[in-house]
Amino acid sequence: MKNILIPTTLQHDTLFAVKTALKQANSNCNITIMYVCDVADAESASLFLRSARPSKTDLQAKILEACHSEANNYPHCTLELHNRYGISAPLLKNLLQHLNTDFIIVPASYRQERDSIHHYCLNLLANSKISMLHLTEAGEELEFNKALYLEHSSAQLDIPQLQELVGNSFNLRIVSHASLTGNYPEQLEQQLSDAITKNNIDLLIETRKAEKIRMKKRKEAYVNETLGLPVLSIFEEV
Rank of each mutant, 00 (worst) to 15 (best):
46 S>L: 15
120 Y>G: 05
35 Y>H: 15
90 P>N: 10
16 F>D: 14
67 C>F: 00
58 D>R: 13
119 H>G: 14
41 D>P: 13
36 V>E: 01
88 S>Q: 04
53 R>K: 15
93 K>R: 10
61 A>V: 06
41 D>H: 08
92 L>M: 15
35 Y>A: 06
75 P>V: 09
45 A>R: 07
15 L>Y: 09
66 A>G: 02
115 D>I: 09
61 A>F: 00
62 K>Y: 09
7 P>L: 02
99 L>A: 05
72 N>S: 13
102 D>G: 07
102 D>N: 14
52 A>E: 06
77 C>L: 09
73 N>H: 06
132 M>N: 02
72 N>G: 13
97 Q>C: 08
116 S>Q: 15
78 T>K: 15
121 C>P: 00
91 L>R: 08
69 S>R: 13
37 C>G: 02
40 A>F: 03
18 V>H: 10
8 T>L: 03
128 S>R: 05
69 S>K: 15
65 E>W: 00
27 S>W: 04
36 V>A: 10
122 L>H: 10
31 I>D: 01
105 I>P: 01
60 Q>N: 11
120 Y>H: 12
86 G>L: 00
54 P>E: 10
112 Q>N: 11
55 S>R: 14
60 Q>H: 07
19 K>Y: 04
76 H>D: 14
120 Y>A: 01
123 N>R: 15
37 C>R: 09
34 M>F: 03
126 A>K: 14
97 Q>T: 07
21 A>E: 08
76 H>L: 07
126 A>D: 13
11 Q>Y: 07
9 T>N: 15
86 G>I: 04
14 T>Q: 10
73 N>S: 12
18 V>F: 01
86 G>A: 08
61 A>S: 12
68 H>G: 12
47 L>W: 02
49 L>Y: 08
128 S>W: 05
38 D>F: 01
127 N>R: 05
12 H>I: 11
26 N>M: 07
24 Q>W: 08
81 L>R: 06
37 C>D: 14
54 P>F: 05
11 Q>M: 08
15 L>I: 09
25 A>T: 07
103 F>P: 03
63 I>N: 00
69 S>D: 14
83 N>S: 14
113 E>N: 05
